[in-house]
Simulated scan of single mutants.
Amino acid sequence: MNEGVDEAGWDVEPGDEIEPVVQAVGHLLKVCREGAGMRPAEFGELMGYGEDMVRKMERGQRIPRPEFLDRADTVLKAQGHLRAFMEDMRKARYPKKVRELAEMEERAIEVLLYRNHNIHGLLQTPEYAKALFETHQPALTADVVERETAARMSRKAIFERDPAPTLGFVQEQVTLERPIGGRMVLRRQLEHLLEVAQLRNVTFQVMPTEREDHAGMQGLIDVMKFGDGTAIGRSDGAFNGRPVSSHRDLQILELRYGMIRAQALTPKESLAFVEQVLGRL
């Protein structure tokens, strides 16, 4: 029996607002199984899982993968009732904080981002993201690494939106040179970055390490602006790292971000720098 958490799904986070939906899907799974005249152990054997895992999903304590529901729909002859929840479970399997961030990114019309420790998540390849999560201390479990990596990759849907939002990235030079995951992972990461940086709605700049005047010494900056005129932003070194939305606080972050962009290499110079780094790998 395959009891691997990688294949079955993930536990529901206590108190998560998605919990009622997962419970409803679990109840439907149980109804379909019983309607097919199968015991939990028998169904689990057909699906490749143990009885305990099946019961956990039916109780709504485990988020089934979309692929699991797809196969279960066929096995139980559910006529598409289980498949109807595949997209809901795809979203549910990501951590709450990631779902909330993705929801804001879906609404944003302009996003301003500055990173100084690693390449921004929206620019990361799966291999780079996985390697980055594997550097966490205390070490994350393989299940958590997979879940976080998948969640981060799901946010790349922002590049497929129409109309496309305006995206501005500024990266510290060191983030493009540190070989997270090894030289080949970094090479593929930089090649991907060059592709994204040439999109018409994307502006990418590099902050040189040698820059003496540096407005970004207080840490990362995120600013998202929405179509209704509202915005939200945060920075490690401002407002105790808390998200802010008042006009006055956002002005401070935008002023700092504007200075960072002015001090960074131009977009053309930045692409040339990335190509130079690639040439040394």
Rank of each mutant, 00 (worst) to 15 (best):
M1I: 14
E3T: 15
G4R: 14
G9I: 13
G9H: 04
W10M: 06
E13D: 11
P14M: 11
P20M: 04
A24L: 08
A24M: 14
V25Y: 02
V25S: 00
L29P: 02
C32L: 10
G35C: 10
P40M: 09
A41F: 03
A41I: 11
E42Y: 00
M47I: 06
M47K: 07
G48R: 10
G50W: 03
E51V: 08
R55P: 01
E58R: 08
R62D: 02
E67C: 09
F68A: 13
L69P: 06
D70L: 14
D70Q: 15
R71W: 09
A72P: 13
T74V: 13
Q79R: 15
Q79F: 09
R83C: 13
E87W: 07
K91M: 07
K91L: 10
K97Q: 12
K97A: 12
V98L: 12
L101D: 03
A102G: 10
A102Y: 05
E110S: 11
L112D: 09
Y114V: 05
R115W: 02
H117L: 13
N118D: 03
Q124Y: 06
E127Y: 01
E127G: 05
K130R: 15
K130H: 13
D143W: 11
V144Q: 11
T149N: 03
A151G: 04
I158M: 09
R161M: 13
D162E: 15
P163S: 01
A164P: 14
T166S: 14
G168W: 14
G168E: 12
F169E: 08
V170T: 13
Q171N: 08
Q173P: 04
T175W: 03
E177N: 00
I180T: 13
L186R: 11
R187A: 04
E191S: 07
L194S: 04
N201I: 05
V202I: 12
V202A: 07
T203L: 04
T203W: 06
F204R: 09
Q205E: 07
Q205I: 02
Q205G: 09
V206E: 06
P208K: 10
E212M: 03
A215F: 06
G219D: 02
L220W: 14
F226V: 12
G227N: 11
G229V: 14
A238H: 15
P243L: 03
R248H: 12
D249L: 05
L250R: 13
L253S: 08
L271K: 06
A272M: 02
V277C: 11
V277E: 05
R280Q: 10
R280V: 01
L281I: 15
